[in-house]
Amino acid sequence: MIELRNVTKEYGKRKALQDVSLQFEKGKIYGILGPNGSGKSTMMKMAAGLVFPSKGEVIVNGQPADRSIARDVAYLSSEGMVYPGLTVQQMIEFFAAQHKDFSLEKAEELIQFMSLERHKKVAKMSKGQQGRLKLLLVLSRKAPVLLLDEPFLGLDPMVRDTIVKGLVSFIDFGEQTVIITTHEITEIEPVLEEAVILDEGMVRARCHVEALREEEGLSVLQWLKRNYQ
């Protein structure tokens, strides 16, 4: 479980997050929605132990999130993450050496599934292929928490579709907690269980996707638009 308790993150006078309290339960898939600069990435980096709160605390599986939380958290970053000079195989070997929960078997399956070339250098891969490689590296881990920060950024619809299928096929449902930040709501909606809207560093709304559909007859996109009307 991930818990943010009254978390504020300040960069000088600017507040990236303001007194945010949220809980993410084990085994569920969450979507974090919101415009650019709303604090989505800051929140993800905090849960990954890469950014520290100015006030409040972030608890992951009962422990305050610091650098060592990488043991329990597999984090897909919107930038960096893969080295241009390394090949797909070298990236896999590097991740396998760094994370005890990395499954080489799963990585082998994902190479096939994602149609990646083992000996191709990252620098020579398209943005879509790089996006798929990042997902491979994260999904190959049997970590209790998966954080996917903008996994669809700059990718075409076909690649986005592959990534969603990858999520559905390779996530351990009920065991792994998955948090996804994205602007591409339509693709991800079928797999989401709950959605949270962040705006100007604050939680604007939160919903159960199924209840929203059944009780109000709304899609997540419609719900998002309604919240901004």
Binding site: S68, R71, Y75, S77, S78, G80
Partner: peptide
Amino acid sequence: GQYWLHST
């Protein structure tokens, strides 16, 4: 991205 810091 300083991704290398996401490490134990």
